[in-house]
């Protein structure tokens, strides 16, 4: 190994710590902001150490927020994120299975029809998608929040790649033992895909949790708001000073679930990130 000691190494650590300090400062300040009274936060410069109003601010945020409590919004976000993650994994595993393990007319047509969705994020087709969802009476519903975001090819593509690496001998062995296609899927393919499913789940959960524009458009009733979009409406405008500490408490609550997922499932998270970009 090359030069692992000396001034250089110390400087490397110093640079890393400084960089991380800058990266983490916004989060620290958000947390500090959520532990003071509104008056302390508005006095410039605001205190840089945590205060003693944490319980009060978080209680207010969870129960009242702006119109609807953050607790309800967190629950909505949870339903949306889980729905998107589970739904996408389920439908894309099934379709990838069909495409890889069966020969049938229009197989490639089906593959390309799904594959094309890879190209268009929902932001691009936002107005017409909104109209479709509105005409299906799905505004202000979990179905409306979840289903349109499930239409994407990334997961299908990923499972297809994985299934192609599964040894053919397994299919032959299953056949010899008299297992049909669904039995093979359930007893062999599903257990083999467990790690891939988990990695994808982590990525999709974060993706679903962090949606902003879509819930902003299709939820008009407060009790259907998700936390990320609800937070957007809690920012006090320039003229009225509002209750910044409560907004910051809500921001902290919005950050905790996805960040916890990244930190505690880091291995799966990195695997998911790298594989979904292949």
């Amino acid at each position: 190994m090359v030069e692992k000691r000396g001034v250089g190494t110390v400087l490397t650590h110093v640079a890393l710590i400084l960089g991380i300090g800058l990266l983490c400062f916004p989060l620290y300040l958000t947390f500090v902001g959520s532990t003071h009274t509104s008056r302390d936060v508005l006095s410039v410069p605001m205190p840089l150490l945590p205060g003693d109003q944490m319980v009060r601010n978080y209680t207010v945020a969870l129960t009242s927020g702006v119109g609807v409590g953050v607790a309800k919004m967190l629950a909505n976000s949870m339903v949306m994120a889980l729905g998107i993650a589970v739904g996408k994994i389920a439908i894309s595993m099934l379709s990838a299975y069909a495409i890889v393990y069966f020969r049938f007319p229009f197989r490639m047509a089906a593959f390309w029809a799904i594959f094309m969705t890879l190209m268009l994020p929902v932001e691009v087709r936002i107005v017409p998608t909104f109209e479709v969802v509105a005409s299906l009476n799905m505004l202000n519903s979990y179905t409306g929040l979840i289903l349109p975001l499930i239409a994407s090819a990334t997961a299908t593509f990923l499972f297809r790649q994985f299934f192609l690496t599964v040894p053919d001998e397994l299919v032959e062995a299953a056949r010899v033992d008299g297992a049909g296609p669904m039995r093979f899927f359930k007893d062999i393919l599903l257990p083999l895909s467990r790690t891939n499913m988990a990695a994808l789940f982590v990525i999709l959960f974060i993706y679903g949790w962090n949606q902003y524009l879509w819930p902003l458009l299709i939820t008009t009733r407060g009790d259907m708001n998700t936390i990320v979009m609800g937070l957007g409406q809690m920012i006090p405008s320039a003229d009225d000073y509002g209750d910044w500490p409560v907004t910051m408490a809500a921001a902290t609550l919005a950050i905790v679930p996805p960040v916890a997922v990244v930190i505690f499932m880091q291995r799966l998270f990195i695997k998911g990130l790298v594989e979904s970009e292949k």
Binding site: G19, L23, N210, I255, V262
Partner: peptide
């Protein structure tokens, strides 16, 4: 400590 901001929503 460097990876966590990935999980923060753009709006947040």
């Amino acid at each position: 400590l460097i990876v966590w901001p990935y999980a923060v929503a753009p709006a947040v």
